[in-house]
Computed example of a mutant assay.
Amino acid sequence: MYNLLKGKRGIISGALDQNSIAWKVAEKAHEEGAVFVLTNAPIAMRMGEINTLAEATGSQIVPADATSVEDLTNLFTQSQEILGGKIDFVLHSIGMSVNIRKKIPYPELNYEYFQKGIDVSALSLHKMLSVAKKLDAINEWGSVVALTYMAAQRTYPFYTDMADIKAMLESIARSFGYHYGLDKKVRINTVSQSPTKTTAGTGIKGFGSFYDYADAIAPLGNADAESCADYCITLFSDLTRMVTMQNLFHDGGYSSTGVSDDVMYRLGVENS
């Protein structure tokens, strides 16, 4: 280990189970010397195994509905009390689409579900940052990372309304990154991760086939949850102090590859 986060305090949201990227981030942050608070929505906490993670990392849990300004105010206030000072890093790993869960195709979206997805998965970042800024809860040169996906830039039919929601999430990171950077030197970035075998990811229709396709396109193959956690740790560290307002692709080169020899070969075999 490198002690990249020695002496740093953080808040990590979204750790549901051992497959979660947020779970891996928490484990890595602990290994690198950080102390942090774990948080998730009360309903997600009942479904997951967050208590096991808290015990393993010596962390406390503060439940919070990320759509509630009141809950988020309590989260940042309590976290500073628990950790003994201002926050140095925050992971936003929050995403939910009722339309995807109910397998509603994009042209027929239920708009109430759509608005719920926007509130949970994108506006929650704005609310989190707004609360933190009002409370002056994040140290200068602190770092906020939100997890996103490439469907914000390109069309993936199975990703339906989450594609639009992730585009909003990335825009919020850029817009708020300007204001928070100007005022407090706080940096805000999004990490666009490969398709990953998490509980949320595998719930998407056709995920298995697309995972294999992306793996065949990316010259390095798909990035797994553990390597994504490594990348997030570097963004929390002082080594990336001048990186902000960026959408950073962590996908084995998938986003820069038009087509691969592997895919061309497979198509050729099938068409022969």
Rank of each mutant, 00 (worst) to 15 (best):
D88V: 06
I217P: 00
L16G: 02
N51V: 06
R101D: 14
P157T: 14
Y213A: 14
D183L: 11
N3H: 10
L75T: 03
A22Q: 07
G181T: 08
D65A: 11
H250A: 14
G142M: 03
I87P: 00
P219E: 15
L239W: 08
W23V: 02
F207E: 10
W141C: 07
S171Q: 12
Y180T: 12
I100W: 04
E108N: 14
T202W: 02
D119L: 07
Y113R: 04
T198M: 02
T155K: 12
I118N: 05
G95F: 06
T67M: 12
Y265W: 11
K86T: 10
S93C: 13
E108F: 09
K185M: 12
E70W: 01
A54E: 06
Y213K: 13
F89M: 06
V120K: 00
F210W: 13
K24V: 00
P195T: 10
N139E: 15
S171I: 01
D88G: 07
I50A: 01
T39L: 01
S171W: 01
L235E: 08
A22P: 07
V191E: 01
T240C: 10
G206K: 07
L239Y: 13
S227M: 12
S192M: 10
T57I: 03
L147S: 04
E140I: 12
H250C: 11
E27Y: 05
L53F: 10
A29D: 05
D230W: 08
S192L: 12
R187V: 12
N51F: 07
M162G: 01
T257A: 07
V263W: 13
F236M: 09
A146F: 03
N222S: 06
T190S: 11
D164W: 01
M264E: 15
A56I: 04
P219N: 09
D164P: 02
F36N: 03
D212H: 10
C232Y: 03
K185N: 11
Q78I: 05
E140S: 14
G58L: 12
V186I: 15
Y113V: 00
R9E: 01
L125P: 01
T67N: 02
S79K: 00
N99I: 03
I43Q: 14
I21W: 08
G258S: 07
M245K: 14
Q193W: 02
